[in-house]
Amino acid sequence: MIRPAPERDAAIVLQNVQKRFGTTYAVRDLDLVVPRGSLCGFLGPNGAGKSTTIRMIMSIIYPDSGAVRVLDGSALAKKDQIGYLPEERGLYRTMRVVEFLAYIGTLKGLDGATAKRRALEWLERIDLPGQAKKKCQELSKGMQQKVQFIASVLHDPELLILDEPFSGLDPMNAMLMSRVITDLHDAGKTIIFSTHQMRTAEALCDRVVLINRGEKLLDAPLAEVRTAFDEHTIIIEPQHEDSALMQRLRGLPGVSDVRRDEENDAHLLVRLNDEQNLQAGMVAVMAFAPMHSVAIKRTSLDFVFLKLVGDSGGAAPIAPAARVSTTGAPRS
């Protein structure tokens, strides 16, 4: 049905990767290909293994078995071409914002002056003007998060890995962050970000990967996911609704089920049989009763998420898997 992307021209390739913390599998037999230039949402419930996978991609921890390739090499060798926003945010509390950014930029291979200039440009761009001279501890949590985001993009990396970039941001800042991520993608960067906010992923990504309990459930372009998980449902808004209408709709040929839309009381969801043509179904419904509106229901990631995670036995209890433990010793 859905095939993973081909390995050639991939930014990230994971082959049969396995990672265990004690007796718990954090990641199991994971194959993953993230094509260059894609904007990939890395989805999964809490404790699914997203952060562990990201840490392995970053070569911060190492898999027990399997291979990880990033930008045709190891993340260790390509550190300066990768931007990384870790799940746990951290800054030097007493350092000034611009000095912190310049420091990280220099560590990522920029010269001091360039790092400082870019830091100031980014602070303007991300709506933090006038904060450069402040100490990091003087900033609000949301501001600190934005500063940390700048630290991950300052050196203009080819690949950007963002672990939960939207968590802790208010709607305004989340929107700003979405716009910046889209801009970076438009500029040709490969971006992978983890989230459990399906709406955000749906709005931004061109590709999604879904994992649960350390196993991959889905890895495909968003358009293909929509087709593959088409609910084959139309949304109708009847002009006059009486109690018998739902019953009578169910009796129509080609209709398998009718239920009320949980998100909008005025809407009914008409699920058609798989062999029934959607357009023909819409015509039949419109002929049946006067309608305010009739539309094809687009498959939501929420639906795909709930279906796949539900089928795979529900979300895993949050294990200490995301934590690094002794078996996660990195190689020197």
């Binding site: 970053m58 911060i60 260790l76 550190k79 300066d80 990768i82 990384y84 870790p86 746990e88 945010r89 951290g90 800054l91 030097y92 509390r93 990280i104 560590l107 990522k108 940390q148 630290a151 991950s152 990195p330 020197s332």
Partner: peptide, 19 residues
Amino acid sequence: IEEKSNKVMEVLLSAVSPM
């Protein structure tokens, strides 16, 4: 300890190796 407790360690390790 400050780098660990401030969680800045992971940012550093994305730029430099532990060594």
